[in-house]
Design a protein around this nucleic acid. Structure first.
Lengths: 185, 185
DNA sequence: CCTGAATATGAGCAAGGTTCAGTTAAGGAG
DNA sequence: CTCCTTAACTGAACCTTGCTCATATTCAGG
């Protein structure tokens, strides 16, 4: 049931935007009544948080796949895989991500948001440590922090951004180059 | 009067958070009635947009000052100035910026947001072009795009972020190093 | 003093998040 | 088959909040 509600919210956000994502619409799409929503979630924000968690799980999964596929290959290949996986995960459904970035900051409390990000941070840090010898950065935690936010921000700006944003392919190249030079000098 | 309203909203956001920033509270703080708000702004989103514009004007001003102070000095010094100015502009009032990042995405339409950012993008691009000879990046527009979003995202994550974020000083060092290596190889 | 145009007011409307008293459905026990 | 209990569901009603508009106030120029 929880899954049904999250899926319904996901679809409303993706197809009708965050303004249409009110509790009545979500309940209607899920085929239940408003009251039932509150049997499984304490409030609307919790529903949005669940959708956000699902989104981050997808991104984390895409990253894990990219890391696995590039295991043993040079750092540069790994970085390109990381950036590409992130971009692809967002290009898959731009409308949903536009809606999420608009609605999430106000709906999900910062602490919850922090926990959601921690998983990706840990994954990234672990991956970095595998290349430790060739890295010139000392503190892997800070490095992972900076890289994570760089990728997330630029990908979002490229996918969601208004007006003339650079081509995704070109952005991927630049971000990958930036990370490589940062890590290895 | 417009300035009074923006200032009142600024203060409510900074001192009471975005949840308290409803039209009644803003009018009360501005010493006027709700109706008068709507004589100067078409809706609440426009008020938030004005506050956001003011914030970006401050950031742009801080950047301009940093660029002016480091004119003629090596690129590395300029980059450090840029990053430091951004960090300082946000450390000045963390609560306000936490509230702004939460409320802005949903309140200000993407196109308006794009226009607000364009000023900083242009400024950054112009500054980069002064060092063109020593840069290994080809497309200054894309470079400015990536650098802008890197700085903005990491600064926000450091200032607003929940939980254990790295020290601002250390983040500044890492971001500055990242940008320098990206631009000059 | 008038007058009327510009501005200010705040009760009230509409929309959306939330609640809860009443209803239905499911699973025994007799 | 009927009754009872418990759990889940329902949706009308409530409350907050963005916004409107009929009314009130101000004030410059006759």
């Amino acid at each position: 049931m929880v899954e049904t509600i999250v899926e319904a919210t996901w679809q409303v956000l993706a197809k009708e935007g965050y303004e249409a994502a009110n509790t009545n619409r979500i309940a209607e799409r899920a085929g239940i009544s408003v009251g039932s929503l509150y049997q499984y979630f304490p409030n609307k924000n919790a529903i949005v948080a669940a959708v956000q968690r699902r989104h981050h799980a997808e991104v984390a999964s895409a990253m894990a796949t990219a890391f696995a596929e590039t295991a043993g290959q040079p750092l540069e290949i790994g970085i390109r895989g990381l950036v590409h996986a992130n971009m692809q995960a967002h290009l898959a459904d731009p409308d949903l991500h536009r809606a999420l970035t608009a609605i999430v900051p106000a709906a999900v409390n910062p602490e919850t948001l922090g926990c959601i990000r921690d998983g990706i941070h840990a994954q990234l840090r672990a991956w970095l440590s595998r290349y430790r010898q060739q890295l010139i950065v000392k503190d892997l935690d800070t490095a992972a922090f900076v890289v994570q936010h760089l990728v997330e921000a630029v990908v979002h700006a490229t996918v969601d951004g208004p007006g003339p944003t650079p081509e995704p392919k070109q952005v991927e190249d630049e971000v990958a180059a930036m990370i490589l030079r940062y890590l290895t000098g």
